[in-house]
Design a protein around this nucleic acid. Sequence first.
DNA 1: AGAACAGTTGAACGGTTGTTCAACTGTTCA
DNA 2: TGAACAGTTGAACAACCGTTCAACTGTTCT
Lengths: 117, 117
Amino acid sequence: MSINEKGNRKHSCECVGAVATLPDEELMFELADFFKLFGDSTRIRILTALDRTELCVCEISELLSMTKSAVSHQLKLLRQSNLVKCERRGKHIYYALADSHVRDIIEKALEHIAEEN
Amino acid sequence: MSINEKGNRKHSCECVGAVATLPDEELMFELADFFKLFGDSTRIRILTALDRTELCVCEISELLSMTKSAVSHQLKLLRQSNLVKCERRGKHIYYALADSHVRDIIEKALEHIAEEN
DNA sequence: AGAACAGTTGAACGGTTGTTCAACTGTTCA
DNA sequence: TGAACAGTTGAACAACCGTTCAACTGTTCT
């Protein structure tokens, strides 16, 4: 039995359970990065607000009682991940959800949370 | 027009857009906390591995090439959030997905990622 | 042109969080 | 009983990340 550099035996587990394999590692990192975007209360509040109607940055910042800067930083992340799209109209830049998956995913999560109680 | 303590005008935004309201704040924090669990590559790898079959801790740690301690810490979080359940059988403690929402949510996320390309 | 508002950006600070390490509990087997 | 393996736990450290701040760009209006 091989010994690694830390002195722990490798394959110390004697169980002969299913030789499970892991899905594509690269995809797992993409998945985690995707979910990270939903894992912040500022971003999730932005997304649920946009789920109802398109909004400009200053409307969002008033709605969340946050500075435009903080909101803008988060919007940038959401934009880069194609979760929201934006369009300038005059002085304002209006943000909207980019596709319907956001809606679906939040829906499923709410179902799970609802069942907890 | 009121001025706040930072010297920034409140309601400086002149736009008379939809007076959007935000969903229950408390729920937003729960949602973010829920998604945080999926937003880590170790945890998402554990969840997708368990999606295929139940596994004991040492099998998971070999599968991910991580220490049992690191895996155990993450399993604790998943357990506390009712995403996985566990059962001791002899020396081993077997972990499995707690419900089918996990499957659904990951499915939706994969659809979104797939459409990016 | 210049004032005022809308929005973005990069650096910096502070809090959060994942892994490591060491010590611990629980189970099996000789 | 005690050795060996399976798994958990808390503290500590390092890396990550969200907000703040100040300076910047872009648009409108006089």
